[in-house]
Measured scan of single mutants.
Amino acid sequence: MAAAAAAGAGPEMVRGQVFDVGPRYTNLSYIGEGAYGMVCSAYDNVNKVRVAIKKISPFEHQTYCQRTLREIKILLRFRHENIIGINDIIRAPTIEQMKDVYIVQDLMETDLYKLLKTQHLSNDHICYFLYQILRGLKYIHSANVLHRDLKPSNLLLNTTCDLKICDFGLARVADPDHDHTGFLTEYVATRWYRAPEIMLNSKGYTKSIDIWSVGCILAEMLSNRPIFPGKHYLDQLNHILGILGSPSQEDLNCIINLKARNYLLSLPHKNKVPWNRLFPNADSKALDLLDKMLTFNPHKRIEVEQALAHPYLEQYYDPSDEPIAEAPFKFDMELDDLPKEKLKELIFEETARFQPGYRS
């Protein structure tokens, strides 16, 4: 834990890192770190609560700039109880001085990944967590956004079992017609939660990839272990087919990539493993919904509104309290091709509203 900075004593240090967030945020305490930044909790002297502050230093890398800009653009436009918001952003007053960006968010005690390492969940908890994931996802999908990296560590939890989806750095506007060349190379989302079509096709992607990830998360809540822990690309596919069985001819016809289709045709026939054999203690309604989410063919996979209306979630289902976005989200430009200098300018502009004396 960093010592509390005395008023006016300059930035606090946390594990050798400068955290320049005073005077409003003090009493910093280390939480963890990701690929390009550290997260601390801090005391907000204005709202009198502890908050989470993520320090991001992305400006050396085009990919990190892209992810940072995506996350900020999306989260500043989203407003939903099951999606983490941005409360404040701290950065230098000029673009030349801006080396880091500090993002202030609600402090959540833990995440689903940490929880599943230590606790076996009751059916009631599984049901409530799944409902909140789908409630947040309904809003995301209504904005025409794909999260693309749903996994237990991106689901934040607090002691009252509130759940918030975080990390929109890989999110995209849904565009089933656009052929994202190089899709697989830039697709760094965790393999275990990846839909089979991501490994088999490169053309376009749809909201059904997020539903697949939610199915993987439900299976993990039922058993405290990942359902498809593939060691590499082909191993991942083999794990999936080992449980779902061989795809039907109709399902194979959806695979545009001939090499991928021929690979699947070359494999020995596998039978589907019954879900109640894998999860003998699970609620039968939970397994019915799991089956509809972990469907090989993305066109037959359940959609988020149908999933919310499934009998497993009937005690929570309330369409009048499951809000959607006001308007579909649009990125003005494809960020993939922009140089990091341009992305830095866009991050600077996007964060201006939090600067003292800002006038829109």
Score class of each variant (00 low, 15 high):
Ile103Val: 00
Tyr263Gly: 11
Ile256Glu: 09
Gly215Tyr: 07
Phe78Arg: 02
Met98Pro: 06
Lys99Cys: 04
Thr206Phe: 12
Thr118Arg: 12
Pro268Thr: 14
Tyr316Gln: 09
Leu252Asp: 05
Gly204Glu: 11
His141Gln: 12
Gln132Glu: 14
His239Arg: 00
Arg261Ser: 10
Ser246Asp: 01
Val39Thr: 14
Ile72Leu: 13
Ile31Ser: 09
Lys151Cys: 10
Ala7Cys: 02
Lys151Asn: 08
Tyr36Val: 15
Leu137Gly: 04
Ile217Asn: 15
Met293Leu: 14
Pro11Lys: 13
Leu137Cys: 05
Asp337Arg: 03
Pro268Trp: 01
Ser266Glu: 03
His147Val: 07
Asp177Val: 14
Ser320Pro: 03
Val14Tyr: 09
Glu33Leu: 00
Pro58Phe: 15
Phe331Ser: 05
Ile256Gln: 12
Glu341Met: 05
Ile227Leu: 11
Gly204Asp: 08
Thr118Gly: 09
Lys48Thr: 13
Ser122Tyr: 10
Asn276Trp: 03
His80Ser: 04
Gly85Trp: 07
Asn262Lys: 15
Ile240Cys: 12
Met293Asp: 06
Asn158Trp: 13
Trp192Ala: 04
Gly16Ala: 09
Asp177Pro: 12
Lys342Ile: 15
Asn201Phe: 04
Thr118Ser: 14
Arg67Gly: 12
Gly34Ser: 02
Ile72Gln: 13
Ala327His: 04
Phe59Val: 14
Glu186Gln: 08
Leu252Ser: 09
Glu12Arg: 10
Lys151Phe: 01
Arg191Val: 04
Tyr193Pro: 03
Val21Thr: 13
Lys138Gly: 12
Thr159Ser: 15
Phe183Val: 14
Leu252Met: 14
Ser57Thr: 13
Val18Asn: 03
Leu346Ala: 10
Met199Ile: 14
Phe348Lys: 09
Tyr316Arg: 00
Leu313Asn: 01
Gly242Leu: 05
Asn87Ile: 14
Leu290Asn: 00
Ile211Gln: 05
Lys292Ala: 09
Pro58Gln: 15
Phe296Met: 05
Asp20Ile: 10
Leu308Ser: 00
Gly136Ile: 00
Leu75Ile: 07
Pro323Met: 04
Ile256Tyr: 04
Leu264Phe: 03
Leu222Phe: 10
Leu184Tyr: 05
Cys40Pro: 15
Lys344Cys: 01
Tyr205His: 00
Asn27Glu: 03
Asn281His: 07
Lys300His: 08
Gln355Thr: 07
Ala7Lys: 01
Ala286Thr: 10
Phe354Pro: 01
Pro339Cys: 02
Asp111Val: 14
Gly10Cys: 12
Tyr233Lys: 08
His80Gln: 14
Val145Phe: 03
Thr159Arg: 06
Cys216Trp: 03
Pro11Ser: 14
Leu258Lys: 05
Val145Cys: 09
Cys161Tyr: 12
Arg24Asp: 10
Pro356Thr: 13
Cys40Ser: 14
Trp212Phe: 11
Leu28Met: 14
Gly245Asn: 01
Ile165His: 09
Lys340Arg: 14
Gln236Arg: 00
Gln119Trp: 09
Asp100Gly: 05
Leu258Ser: 07
Gln306Val: 05
His178Gln: 12
Ile56Gln: 15
Thr159Gly: 06
Gly32Leu: 03
Phe228Met: 05
Thr206Ile: 11
Asn238Thr: 13
Met333Phe: 04
Tyr312Phe: 15
Tyr102Pro: 00
Leu146Phe: 05
Ala52Met: 13
Tyr131Asn: 15
Glu345Leu: 07
Gly169Leu: 00
Lys272Asn: 14
Glu81Asn: 12
Ala282Pro: 08
Val188Cys: 09
Leu137Tyr: 07
Asp88Asn: 13
Leu338Cys: 10
Thr185Ala: 12
Pro247Arg: 04
Ile165Val: 07
Glu303Phe: 01
Tyr316Phe: 15
Leu234Gln: 14
Gly204Ala: 06
Tyr312Gly: 05
His147Gly: 07
Leu335Ile: 10
Ile209Arg: 08
Gly22Ser: 00
Ile83Glu: 01
Leu343Arg: 03
His269Trp: 10
Leu157Phe: 07
Met293Ser: 03
Gln306Tyr: 02
Ile140Ser: 09
Ile217Thr: 03
Leu130Val: 10
Ile256Thr: 02
Gln119His: 13
Phe354Asn: 08
Val49Ala: 00
Thr110Lys: 02
Asn123Met: 09
Thr185Trp: 05
Arg148Gln: 13
Glu250Trp: 03
Leu234Met: 14
Arg277Asp: 10
Thr94Arg: 09
Ile53Ser: 13
His232Asp: 05
Asn27Met: 01
Tyr358Trp: 06
Ala3Glu: 06
